[in-house]
Computed example of a mutant assay.
Amino acid sequence: MSEPAAPEHRAIYLTGPTASGKSAVGVELARLLDAEILALDSMTLYRGMDVGTAKATTSERGGVPHHLIDVLDPWESASVAQYRGWAIEAIRDVESRGRRALFVGGTALYLKAMLRGLFEGPGADPVVRERLEAEAEAQGDAALHARLAMLDPATAARLHPNDRRRIVRALEVIELTGTAFSALQRQHERPASGVRVFALELPRPVLYDRINRRVSAMFDAGLVDEVRRLQSAPRPLSGVAAQGVGYSEVIAHLEGGPGLDRTIDLIQIRTRQFAKRQGTWFRGLAEVAPLAMEPGEPAEAVAKRIAARIEGGGEG
């Protein structure tokens, strides 16, 4: 099997729900493959957000180079498109040293963007857009939404009748391409071929127990102090950083909300819910090959199984 041409398709991906053991397996797999690790995680991008993101410590990284970690201050934010650009640049950097790029993390939107790219559609046409804006002003947003419903029912169904910006954009795309916006998106949804993507899976009771214990360990490691320090910084946390599971609940606690025990309970519940959503996401991506783990199976053993499938020429 020939290697895919695009850098992001030459990379190897290790994903799975939070607390499934990705970091430890990733380090062992990187050693076996002579790879460097690129974080596939929207929260470990932030400096100073270490405890609540379960960011791998220096010792846990085991001497394996890690990239795309600690690249933003907590008051900054980055789009999926920015992450994808950084990631492709990092892949090329790793490959320039004759090593493989191994993505490890559980941010599903990042994974999908790396595998399938980002749908942007044709560039804006100022003349068409200005005319549609004028029609919306004269006829009302509902009239344009009704027109969109006739031309592209799928897109109209997911847009609020008052969402003028997106309605105008959808009509603009139809006029410029002769194709419904939803049809173009479906074309973009085609799975990538030849990419090695593995998702760790544990029995749900085992995963949930690991989540509960991890959250408790975060509080023992100083999560409340970490959030207090972030809150006292000269600039406030970005919306993305402040809404991270664990951070938003501790912020509420520090601002007079639920007590500490209830806060721990809430984070455990919401992390379990998040893990369930992650599993649904990964199962919905055709590129992903599930990898069942036995409870207590050593990370090295899991990594050896993955490496054998990669070196054996399987697609994941």
Rank of each mutant, 00 (worst) to 15 (best):
R164I: 06
G123D: 04
D125P: 02
E300V: 11
G63D: 07
E311L: 14
L176K: 09
Y110Q: 06
L184M: 14
L200K: 00
L68V: 00
F103R: 15
Q185E: 15
Q185G: 12
Q185D: 01
S20I: 06
E297Y: 06
H145Q: 05
E297T: 06
K304C: 04
L38K: 01
R116F: 02
E175I: 09
L14C: 11
L45D: 00
R84V: 13
L132V: 12
I306D: 03
Y83M: 14
N212R: 07
F181T: 00
F219N: 05
A180W: 04
P205N: 05
W75L: 10
M43L: 11
E226H: 08
G48R: 05
L159Q: 08
E294G: 11
K304D: 08
A289T: 11
R10P: 03
L132P: 02
A124G: 06
A90K: 11
P191H: 04
T18L: 11
S20D: 11
F282C: 08
G121Y: 10
A54K: 05
S79R: 13
L260N: 03
G314C: 08
L148V: 01
L260F: 03
R196G: 07
R61Q: 15
E28V: 13
S79W: 02
A87W: 00
L14T: 02
Y110T: 01
E130V: 10
G178T: 05
R116S: 03
E311T: 10
F103L: 15
L72P: 13
A5K: 00
L148D: 02
A113Q: 01
H9M: 10
L176M: 08
R158H: 14
G85H: 11
D50Y: 07
L40K: 00
E8Y: 02
S77Q: 04
A81M: 02
E311I: 04
H145V: 02
L151M: 09
P4W: 08
R305S: 07
R61Y: 07
W75S: 10
R186M: 12
I37V: 14
R204Q: 10
G62Q: 13
T280F: 05
